[in-house]
Design a protein around this nucleic acid. Structure first.
Lengths: 237, 237
DNA sequence: GATGATTTGTGCGTATGTATG
DNA sequence: GCATACATACGCACAAATCAT
């Protein structure tokens, strides 16, 4: 007899938390938009209690912001905020690379290699598949974080990464950035495979710094338009 | 006429949050101890609602832990956890040192220098003043974090640092550690003053790594006894 | 297991505060 | 300034889960 377990439904506040989080990440709730506990409660067909808890949790994470008058808004990163997020990622992910190089199992490392191979494959194809490229890019970073085997590091980066979702898509803008990213990833992977933690960390740091530079370069044109709408919304409130 | 403003009392959930946090840090609630919403509510003379929110926030921070049956416990770090905390601090605080070296104002840097001078003073005194030494040690790190001018970094380190409180006091155990710490701090300070971010970061990383090594060395004797009580409590539940 | 005591999860009413006209 | 509308803060009641006997 195959084992099967009844799904015990999670507490509402948990479900609501994840759902709101998703709505923010997928822009169903837009940056800068004001949200209301009561409306969310009606939307989820629950009372305000679970929504309240979810909202507070998302505030601690930074995805929602409560102002001095207890009004709730979706986080709307300024350009400076984005730079700060990148800086923290640099620090934490280079640590992740170092740890992974030191302690990941061979089979874990080969899983990272698999992502590299798939990316290479994708890049040789003529037609550009940006969706997939973003997915693999994310996977590469996620695996390294996971295999670092440091729970606290994982937690910290998880919350930072949800903040990054707002603009991660921007990374691939620009002509050769896809290939550059790949080369950098490959280099990091090589160092990890060689178990050289120092170089892996250094390379990861450079890699994310490059992303930041690239982001800043694109910024003067791109940031303005992508976030213009949000800024407008903000002004109106 | 002197300006004076009516104190608007903060929301209960906020006050309760800080009070519970304090109780954990000062060990009035002991690591591994189970706590109850209802009891806390009675203790604070509030309903469970504010307590609930405070508890959820502290969970996100890691000071409280909720198990699969919704039972609430005070965080009780394993030896591994402590290593993980140190690793994250290494990454984040070395970033802080780098940023501070780059962007702190001269007057901010001189404030760090003031802490260094006070520490030196204290160390020349014959009688040991551990309390004060810990305070200055903390101040040194806090100032560098603050002057890094990165809010996210500040937030992340704030939550990590409350996790550190459990064992920070152990750092000064051992014969010459106080002096060693001071020398390392002074070196970091010099690099910051010279505006050399790279070296400041490197030195900060080494410094915290040394703390970790020192902690591990003391461990086989100290950790056992300090945390024995907690472990026992854990076993009993 | 069954039962009662305790604890957490959820809904809702009311008080209080804020924005708007 | 006042009245209205609507938001959040908090307490309380009861249901559901858990624990002890």
């Amino acid at each position: 007899m195959t084992k099967f377990s009844i799904e015990k439904s999670k507490p509402y506040y948990d479900q609501v938390y994840y759902k709101i989080r998703e709505m923010i990440i997928f822009m169903e709730l837009k940056p800068g938009e004001r949200v209301y506990e009561a409306k969310l409660a009606r939307f989820f067909h629950t009372s305000r209690s679970p929504v309240r808890e979810a909202v507070k949790a998302l505030c601690k994470e930074g995805l929602l912001v409560i102002d001095d008058k207890s009004r709730i808004f979706v986080y709307n990163p300024t350009f400076d905020d984005i730079i700060q997020i990148y800086q923290c990622r640099t620090a934490l992910e280079s640590l992740a690379a170092k740890l992974t190089a030191h302690i990941a199992t061979d089979s874990q490392i080969s899983k990272i290699g698999e992502v590299i191979r798939q990316t290479e494959q994708l890049l040789t194809d003529e037609e550009e598949n940006r969706e997939q490229l973003i997915r693999l890019n994310t996977a590469f970073h996620q695996l390294i974080i996971k295999y670092s085997n440091n729970n606290l590091l994982n937690k910290q980066l998880e919350s930072i990464n949800s903040l990054s979702f707002f603009f991660r898509v921007l990374n691939f803008k620009g002509d050769h950035r896809g290939r550059e990213l790949f080369m950098e990833h490959q280099q990091i992977y090589q160092y990890i495979k060689q178990r050289n933690g120092e170089l892996a960390a250094r390379a990861m740091m450079k890699h994310i710094e490059n992303d930041l530079v690239h982001f800043c370069e694109m910024n003067s044109e791109t940031y303005q338009t992508v976030f213009k709408e949000a800024k407008d919304r903000e002004k109106r409130t």
